[in-house]
Design a protein around this nucleic acid. Structure first.
Length: 352
DNA sequence: CAACCGTGGCC
DNA sequence: TGGCCAAGGTT
């Protein structure tokens, strides 16, 4: 163990040792300052699972203020109703949230629970972890929030808090760094009974979300600042450099005929199962070469590492359009029922 | 294991 | 404006 890790081990002992008031102070602060969320006011493991899947790489405000969680729980209040639903309806309720595989995996979770677990939600960490779309973080979150099991969790917030607390100055998102942070989280997690892991984990995340935030840490108000090793919180956590953005162009069709619109079903790895404006194929563009007046809409959007300029081409002669398995005409009134990727939904709203 | 998967908000 | 990133997981 090198010198830096020795320091971390010593600090860990101070925080995790018997009689340490670190956890007690954190929990007390949370009791007085923790926010109330629908998924915090319940111990229903399904309700908590739904929130965790929705919140993966997605901000609380998006899930809550735009009504995704409320609509979902109203339509699918339990695993049984979700398991029985059509995927089209599942995707529709997810429309606009992004990372659509989450919705399909949540759907599979419900089906697995109904079938393999005979309708009763798995109640131990290893079984929860078997569910599709449930990784180390989500499994720990469900285990501790729903079942009050002493399972550690590390999300972006916790990683930031722990990196600062231990002044951990290596990338937290590398393999080695992740192991280190998870190890710290697990050692800090009290294992005894009545350890209040539910409140403890909530408190750790809440701290990272509020006082120990990324841009403007409020150390003066922090309940555990006395335990914190770093003198430069803004510089932590260290992360690997991001992939740089790639510019690209996308050409799609706006074909409107007799009050109907042509759409195409996504079949690649991206937005699978959702509808989009049909891609302009090379052979179609050779028949009708790019002309400025054909482009009726230009807009930009970002997806993963790409910054896309979307050109929407008006189709003047819809008779020349090639139809295949993935393309289909829809009445304009039907469009609301379909699930479209956000940029195409936006484009259609501008064009119709 | 590095790359991939969406979207909207913020500065 | 554009880069950064948020309650990660899968391949």
């Amino acid at each position: 163990m090198n010198l830096r890790n020795q320091k971390i081990a010593q600090r860990h002992d101070a925080l995790a040792g018997e009689g340490s008031s670190f956890r007690a102070k954190l929990i007390r602060w949370f009791e007085q300052n923790g926010k109330s969320y629908p998924w915090r006011d319940t111990q229903d493991p399904y309700a908590i699972l739904v929130s965790e899947l929705m919140l993966q790489q997605t901000q609380v405000a998006t899930v809550l203020e735009r009504g995704y969680y409320q609509r979902w729980m109203k339509r699918f209040p339990e695993t049984k109703t979700l398991a029985a639903a059509d995927e089209s309806e599942v995707l529709k309720l997810w429309e606009g949230l992004g990372y659509y595989s989450r919705a399909r995996r949540l759907h599979q979770c419900a089906q697995n629970i109904e079938q393999q677990f005979a309708g009763s939600f798995p109640a131990d960490l290893a079984s929860i972890r078997l569910l599709p779309g449930v990784g180390p973080y989500t499994a720990g979150a469900v285990a501790s929030f729903a079942f009050d099991l002493p399972a550690a969790i590390v999300d972006g917030n916790v990683a930031r808090v722990l990196a600062r607390l231990f002044d951990y100055r290596e990338a937290v998102d590398s393999t080695a760094g992740g192991k280190m942070i998870w190890s710290l989280a697990q050692q800090l997690m009290p294992k005894r009974k009545n350890a209040r892991s539910r409140e403890y984990n909530s408190a750790l995340m809440e701290l990272g979300q509020t006082l120990c935030n990324r841009s403007e840490p409020l150390c003066g108000d922090c309940p555990v600042s006395a335990y914190c090793a770093t003198r430069d919180p803004k510089s932590l956590p260290i992360k690997k450099p991001r992939q740089k953005t790639v510019l690209m162009e996308e050409d799609v069709l706006f074909a409107k005929n007799k009050g109907r619109i042509l759409l195409e079903k996504e079949s690649g790895s991206r937005r699978t199962g959702l509808w989009k404006l049909p891609a302009l194929h090379a052979e179609e563009s050779s028949h009708s070469p790019h002309q400025k007046e054909q482009i009726v809409l230009t807009m930009k959007y970002s997806i993963t590492k790409y910054r896309v300029t979307l050109y929407v081409h008006q189709v003047k002669d819809t008779a020349n359009i090639k139809l295949d398995q993935h393309r289909k005409w829809f009445a304009i009134a039907e469009l609301d029922q379909l699930t479209l990727g956000a940029p195409y939904r936006r484009a259609l709203e501008k064009l119709l």
